[in-house]
């Protein structure tokens, strides 16, 4: 019944926290399959249901409904063989701060019954790979966030799992640490580990994943290669602009509607005193906005280009009007901006 090419198969997986009628519906009848040997991205904004899904896949949370088959085993009935073969890197680095890096690794190796003869050698290799060998005897309470994250990944792979779950491994890390972790994920995958990667960064998913599922409000909107999703990502880039007439003149509200008519603008949404103009090519639109302002003697109060937001990607994929929801995730995305006052008028 289950496909052997699939490391994970999920059918109608649902989670309601609390009572069925009054609780929080965090994951709503999702379906997907992760192939053996791929890096599968689970991409969604805050509160989308990513962690909830991952916790169900790793036996930490009981699904309200639905079926999970991992490596050929029904997770509800046979968790044991699955647990032996999976590694787990949770959202928060859950290392034992009272122990040294070495003792943390030894503990996990023993917990996963890594043969005595191999424990020390594997721990040494991992600590060297992760740049923690020098610090092996230091208590983890003195480790930085990046070091803790690396250690928690090392702990997750010391038993050589064939399936590795990572919940947002890079946020909060500096550029180098994040890159080191991404390289490591690639390397593990090249050695044959199937990776389930939860993230809210489109760029990260693009760089690492063979396929990506896009989830929001507990629904999966699409599962595809990053390459094929790129067209969607492109369509929901935007330029955000606020204009103002020079001092002494009454504000004329009409500039927003006029900008909407500029070539290349697909959709426009008013957001407070700003307008957001969706376009596939922000760099072509910017000079047009400047020209319009100059021609109409308007001051540019702010002007910035926005990369695709996951909210918008999700709306676009589900055929809804982009820009209609504003969430806190907004500020996570790349924003190349010229903020503040800029002379647009003469």
């Amino acid at each position: 019944m289950s496909n052997l090419d699939h490391a994970i198969e999920v059918n109608d997986l649902t989670k309601i926290y609390g009572q069925a009628d009054s609780g929080v519906l965090a994951v709503d009848h999702i379906n997907f399959a992760v192939r053996q040997g791929e890096v599968f991205g689970f991409l969604g904004p805050n509160g989308a249901g990513k962690t909830t899904t991952q916790r169900m896949l790793t036996t930490l949370l009981e699904p309200t409904e639905g079926r999970i088959v991992i490596l050929g085993h029904d997770l509800a009935r046979e968790p044991y063989p699955v647990k032996r073969q999976m590694g787990l890197v949770p959202e928060e680095s859950n290392v034992y701060t009272e122990l040294t890096a070495w003792d943390n690794l030894m503990f996990t190796a023993q917990l996963y019954r890594v043969p005595r003869a191999e424990r020390a050698e594997r721990a040494r290799q991992l600590l060297e790979t992760f740049g923690l060998w020098e610090k092996r005897s230091v208590k983890v309470e003195n480790f930085s966030k990046g070091m803790r994250r690396r250690l928690s990944i090392a702990m997750a792979i010391i038993h050589r799992p064939s399936l590795l779950f990572l919940d947002e491994p890079t946020p909060g890390l500096d550029v180098q640490s994040a890159r080191a972790i991404r390289d490591l994920i690639r390397q593990l995958n090249a050695e044959g580990t199937t990776i389930f990667l939860t993230t809210h960064q489109i760029e990260e998913a693009n760089q690492l994943c063979d396929r990506v599922a896009i989830i929001n409000h507990g629904h999966i909107a699409a599962t595809d290669t990053p390459e094929r999703l790129k067209a969607t990502f492109r369509r929901v880039q935007s330029v955000e602009v606020a204009l103002e007439p020079p001092e002494g003149l009454e504000p004329s509200g009409g500039w927003g509607e006029a900008l909407t008519a500029l070539p290349g603008v697909t959709t426009a949404v008013k957001m407070g005193d700003k307008w957001r103009l969706y376009t596939e090519d922000p760099s072509a639109l910017l000079p047009q906005v400047m020209d319009y302002a100059r021609a109409n003697k308007l001051k540019v109060i702010s002007l910035s280009t926005l990369g695709p937001s996951l909210e918008d990607v999700f709306l676009e994929l589900t055929g809804q009007q982009v820009g209609t929801v504003r969430h806190e995730t907004q500020d996570d995305r790349p924003r190349r901006g010229m903020k503040g006052r800029m002379g647009g008028g003469r």
Binding site: L60, Y80, Y112
Partner: peptide, 14 residues
């Protein structure tokens, strides 16, 4: 609270 309990719950033991 520290999240370390998940380690034990996810480990292959009863």
């Amino acid at each position: 609270r520290l999240g370390t309990y998940d380690r034990l719950l996810a480990a292959p033991m009863s």
